[in-house]
């Protein structure tokens, strides 16, 4: 059992309200990412759930019981911090067994549990190592193991991978994913990295300026952002202004058939993802797209990011094709079915 419910949570630091009216449910066995830019209040929320910080309002329920006023050591939630914060005066297995010993578990049983977790986190052979003899990635795995061994209802992970290099981060993501699916432990995973959140979680909760802007499946947030700011956070660059008229969206960038919509005549914002725009070199006979000229190209490896100046404004295009050059005349096409219309502002 591992059920977390956050109701109308409010947290201040002195006079500054950092979190306001935040609601979030994490269900048993679920992996939810709390995604947000630096300073959004992610750590603050985790600390409140762990009990390290007293909220100024709202309620937190773990397994259906309110934990208001319950100290962290009596809550069935364990937090893994942004930095490993291992105990420097203990070796690896002493660090991992710490929580079990504090619980008063017998030595033999503790050793058995620690061995199991060492294997799960691929740390076999390092059990006698001193903490300062470990690499950053190993330290982070020990921190993870130290929390996992307690089998909490809820595991709270605060950007545990942010200090690792790209390769190691990828391996650790896979490790966390494997552990999650093997143990079915409920996890709330904080990150500022959108691809990490999309890859790891069953659901993503996007936090901007202390408020949850959208909660949903990774694909839903990515393809159906609730508002332009959510879209922008996921790399949205192209925003159109226009209005609906009989199933057609009229904008500066052209008229698109978007099907029947409410709010005839209302002003609506729309967006198109850079990778959904098609781009071709301009030829004598037009293919029906928008004419434009390339302002800038950025090679990003698997794709090239191209800024195209059209008469209505600039569009950012992401293409896997090579060979586009600044100054080149091109034609871009916006597929109407990929256009995302936001609800009325």
């Amino acid at each position: 059992m591992g059920d977390l419910r956050i109701e109308k949570l409010a947290i201040d630091y002195g006079a500054r309200a950092v979190i306001q009216g935040l609601d979030l449910d994490v269900h048993d066995g679920e992996m939810v990412s709390l995604l947000g830019p630096s300073g959004a209040g992610k750590t603050t929320i985790l600390k409140a759930v762990a009990g390290l910080l007293e909220p100024s309002g709202g309620n937190i329920l773990i397994d259906g019981h309110s934990v208001r006023g319950v100290p962290p050591e009596k809550r069935n939630a364990v937090m893994v911090f942004q930095k490993p914060l291992l105990f420097p005066f203990m070796n690896v297995s002493q660090n991992i067994g710490f929580g079990l010993r504090m619980r008063g578990q017998a030595g033999g049983e503790t050793a058995r549990h620690v061995d199991h977790i060492l294997a799960l986190t691929r740390l076999e052979g390092l059990s006698r190592r001193k903490v300062h003899e470990l690499s950053g990635g190993q330290q982070q795995r020990v921190a993870l193991a130290r929390a996992l061994v307690l089998k909490p209802s809820i595991l709270l992970l605060d950007e545990p991978l942010s200090n690792l290099d790209a390769t190691l981060r990828q391996r650790m993501r896979e490790l966390i994913q494997t552990i999650q699916s093997e143990t079915r432990m409920t996890m709330l995973f904080v990150t500022h990295d959108q691809s990490e959140a999309l890859m790891l979680s069953h659901r993503v909760a996007l936090l901007l300026d202390g408020r949850l802007r959208q909660v949903g499946a990774p694909r839903q947030l990515f393809h159906h952002p609730a508002d332009p700011e959510v879209a922008r956070f996921f790399g949205g660059k192209n925003f159109f202004q226009g209005h609906i008229q009989n199933g057609m969206y009229h904008s500066d960038f052209g008229v698109f058939a978007v099907g029947p919509q409410d709010g005839n005549g209302h002003l609506r914002t729309a967006t198109i993802r850079p990778e959904d725009i098609r781009i071709v070199p301009r030829r004598a006979e037009s293919s029906g797209g928008l004419a434009g000229r390339i302002v800038k190209t950025n090679f990003e490896g698997s794709a090239t990011r191209i800024v195209v100046a059209c008469s209505a404004g600039e569009l950012v295009v992401l293409t896997s094709q090579d060979g586009f050059l600044p100054g080149q005349e091109v034609e871009v096409t916006v597929p109407p079915d990929k256009l995302r219309l936001f609800p009325d502002a």
């Binding site: 929580g99 130290r146 929390a147 307690l150």
Partner: peptide, 9 residues
């Protein structure tokens, strides 16, 4: 804080 979340009194 680590100690608290690891359930040390």
């Amino acid at each position: 804080d680590v100690g608290r979340t690891l359930k040390a009194s």
